[in-house]
Design a protein around this nucleic acid. Structure first.
Lengths: 108, 108
DNA sequence: CTTTCATTTCAATATTGTTTGAAATATAGT
DNA sequence: ACTATATTTCAAACAATATTGAAATGAAAG
């Protein structure tokens, strides 16, 4: 992941609505959720949800595919992994405090 | 780290100027850099650098302390660690792909 | 106590992002 | 073809953020 991609991803998840969409989609798992369900989840109008979803898709955070009439969105975990690593390695140069914090079970 | 703090941190590093400041400060290490040096590094006017630095300080990403006439900034690695973990655990529920990506040395 | 240096604060402007509602597109059933 | 459903696209209004340059602050030196 390069700086431009990282900026787009950080920018995308710096909106409360989009961060909640992301969390909802992580919970939903590989099946994903339809645009309409997502809109309901975050209490947004269809067009507003669509706007945020296309922002997330542009940032590579989610992947969409049409299932008959509905469009299903799921998390792109590759991007999320690359982003987390960008934060840890490119930004923090694999700093010890940061690395240590990221071992699940550790206090930080 | 809670959602509000994470949003502030993501929002802060979703600016190219601030992301570069962050990287510069990580490279500078615990000594940090003065506001003026940072401004020079990212090719910004003093007031513009100051604006971005106070945004980063508000987000808890950097810590400032005055050294006689200059103000020195350094990275708050605790926050960076907490943020990285937020991404991995709170957002991605410690997803395997994401976790695996974050082991330095792995391909992802 | 005035000057110089480093930085911040402020107000004005410029830029960018978000929301809304209406119209458009795409798919499926009748 | 016609109607209903799901979603997107668009333009306008609105809101938030960034940039600029000038003025203000705080600290040291003469």
């Amino acid at each position: 992941m390069n700086e431009t991609d990282a900026l787009a991803a950080f920018s995308s998840i710096s909106s409360a609505t989009r961060l909640r969409i992301l969390k909802g989609l992580v919970t939903a798992g590989p099946e994903g959720m339809n645009a309409g369900e997502i809109a309901e989840l975050v209490d947004a109008t269809p067009s507003r949800a669509s706007f945020h979803l296309s922002n997330m898709a542009d940032a590579g955070l989610v992947i969409s595919n049409r299932q008959s009439r509905q469009i299903s969105y799921r998390v792109n975990f590759e991007t999320m992994g690359a982003l987390t690593r960008y934060l840890m390695d490119d930004c923090c140069q694999n700093n010890e405090i940061v690395r240590n914090c990221c071992v699940t079970g550790n206090r930080c």
